[in-house]
Simulated scan of single mutants.
Amino acid sequence: MSSPPLCSGFSPFFSKPQLSVASLWLPIIEHLIKTHFSKDKRLFVSCDRTQWKDYNLFVVSVIWAKRAWPIYWNFLDKRGCSNLSEQQALLRPVIRMLKSYDYVVVGDREFHSVELAKWLQAEGVAFAFRQKADTYIQLKGEDFQQLKSLDLSPGMKRFLTGVKVTKSKGFGKVALACYWKRTYKSRNLDEPWYILTNLGNLEETLAAYKARSGIEAMFKDCVRLVG
């Protein structure tokens, strides 16, 4: 796994051994966060991965004004999804930087991993990760069932607590926010959002997950910038 700059045109600059994302960029983004974010206001930190030209980019960003500021990133030396060790490696510097802030780590269905959620909970970090519809859960006093078997219809919201997630891992004492939005970007949605979280209620969880759209805007900005 390597850590070149987010825009590949800066590669010669960052190739100097004394310069790196950790040594040069992290102090800058830390200053920006201190300047623009109050410690009494919650931050939303989004994990995402995208295939950009020949690069498999994995990035963690803080959401600001419906955009995202990249905090830390890696270009994975493979195609396809990131794994738990890669996710932990990317998140550790972010967790250290934001230890005095109230923040939530959010991610789409690539980050549905029970192991990642369990690790973040052990680190004392709040999370909201969208789950795949075929994920198995167990509610108190009930048998295991797939998320898609929950009785939901467009417009419905549910917040389930004390949920055990997946038969094999059995990660319990977490919550699941379910929301079937009627439309998104003027189109009907085929299925609900199923969001695994350790936040306390439905409204907090939905606000956190909705905030992650800022990273999609950042990717679009980068594409327009570098072509």
Rank of each mutant, 00 (worst) to 15 (best):
F58A: 05
K39M: 08
V114M: 11
H36M: 09
K181Y: 07
V174S: 03
P154W: 03
M156L: 15
A208Y: 02
A207W: 00
F75G: 05
H112Y: 15
L225I: 14
L160W: 01
Q138I: 00
L98K: 12
D77I: 03
S15L: 09
F219L: 05
L116K: 02
S11K: 15
S11R: 15
S186F: 13
I28N: 09
K66T: 10
A208K: 00
D221Q: 04
S85N: 11
K169R: 15
V114F: 10
K181H: 09
E115Y: 07
S20R: 04
E30K: 05
A128M: 00
E142Y: 04
L147H: 01
D143H: 14
T161A: 12
P192V: 15
Q138S: 03
R96P: 00
S213P: 08
I29N: 00
G172F: 13
Y209F: 06
Q87T: 15
S23R: 15
L147I: 00
Y179N: 11
A177C: 09
W69R: 08
E204L: 03
K173P: 03
S61Q: 07
A89T: 10
M218S: 09
L116R: 01
R224F: 13
E203T: 07
L202H: 03
I33L: 04
C47G: 05
V94D: 00
W69K: 03
P17N: 06
V125Q: 03
N83W: 10
E110W: 09
V163T: 14
K167P: 10
L84T: 11
L189G: 04
A128R: 01
K41F: 09
I28E: 11
K132S: 10
S46G: 13
G80P: 06
W69S: 03
I71N: 00
K118G: 15
G107Q: 03
W180P: 02
S213R: 04
Y72G: 07
E110L: 09
H112V: 13
G155A: 08
W73V: 06
L19E: 08
V174M: 06
L152K: 13
F10R: 08
I215Y: 02
G80R: 12
G200S: 14
S15Q: 06
K164A: 05
T166K: 04
P27Q: 10
Q131F: 01
T183H: 08
F111G: 07
A117T: 14
L150E: 02
W64G: 06
V223K: 11
S149P: 11
P12K: 14
W193I: 05
D48L: 00
P12V: 12
F58Y: 11
K148N: 09
I215H: 00
N201L: 10
M156W: 06
W25D: 04
K181I: 05
F171E: 06
